[in-house]
């Protein structure tokens, strides 16, 4: 079973700043971590490998320092990693990111399962996983909370719903995105950390991927970010006090005053 896990390096703080010039995140001086949901994806991939054998390849698109995130995944037990890095990828939206990752996966060529975290904590769109599957023309299940069975050409998993869950069967190759209920990620091992330190992370550019220039980076991104801002805090509501009857009267009077009724 060859598994590809797509991971993203994100700022490890909730106190993110947004550049007024570029409308993107300011990453300088901020500690980076693996997107927390992706850690569950890595763990699930390693568990599947431990059960049925195979190889876990980590794939990430990002600046050169994203190699650190890939190495962390190797320290946990992934076998190898590939970084898609090119100035031409800068400014990618979810569509362009999905396209670029799909080109990376095509180049990896031999894979049965792709696992992504359900969403990244910086963008919070939950679109990239499904986007990759669409770009590759593969079936996918999002919000997987359990892999019940997996074997050559077949997976059965549970998709988490608002209430309860669905059991879905799917043929492989396919893509799943996972929620944090799926497992408890392990810490790295010392042997893993030593392997990660020595690991060579291949870097593939737009040219290596034979990516269509019109589909990557800012040019390939249909989404245009006009402005990013923190919405003002909601002002506190108005409390109407008194006996029930009294409250009702005051409420109606207030609604009339506001010309709502």
């Amino acid at each position: 079973m060859n598994i590809v896990v797509c991971i993203k390096q994100v700022p490890g703080t909730t106190d993110v700043k947004i550049s007024e010039k570029t409308n993107t995140l300011v990453r300088e001086g901020v500690e980076s971590i693996i997107n927390p949901f992706d850690v569950y994806a890595i763990e699930e991939a390693i568990r599947i490998k431990e059960k049925v054998g195979g190889k876990v390849t980590i794939l990430s698109m990002g600046p050169p320092q994203a190699k650190e995130a890939i190495k962390e995944a190797i320290a946990m037990g992934a076998d190898e990693g590939i970084l898609l890095s090119d100035r031409a990828f800068a400014g990618s939206d979810t569509w362009a990111t999905g396209y670029t990752l799909s080109m990376g996966i095509k180049k990896i060529s031999s894979f049965d399962l792709i696992i992504c975290g359900k969403q990244a904590i910086d963008g919070d769109t939950a679109q990239v996983g499904p986007g990759v599957a669409e770009a590759l023309g593969l079936p996918f299940v999002a919000y997987v909370r359990k892999v019940e069975e997996i074997k050559e050409g077949y997976i059965r998993c549970e998709r988490m719903m608002e209430e309860g869950y669905e059991v879905i069967e799917m043929s492989l190759p396919a893509l799943i995105t996972v929620v944090k209920e799926i497992n408890e990620p392990r810490l790295p091992s010392l042997k893993g950390m030593m392997r990660a330190k020595k690991a060579e992370i291949a870097t593939w550019t737009a040219q290596d991927l034979s990516a269509e220039p019109a589909n990557i980076g800012l040019t390939g991104s249909p989404t245009q970010v006009v402005k990013i801002f923190s919405p003002p805090a909601r002002p506190g509501g108005e409390m109407i006090l008194g006996e029930i009857g009294e409250q009702a009267e005051k409420l109606v009077a207030r609604l009339r005053e506001l010309k709502i009724v």
Binding site: L187, P188, S189, L190, M193, M194, K197
Partner: peptide, 19 residues
Amino acid sequence: TDEQKMIIELAHKIAVEKI
């Protein structure tokens, strides 16, 4: 050594996150 620094990093992670 680099390896000793790794040991400390790992033991620290275990201590803080698990213990």
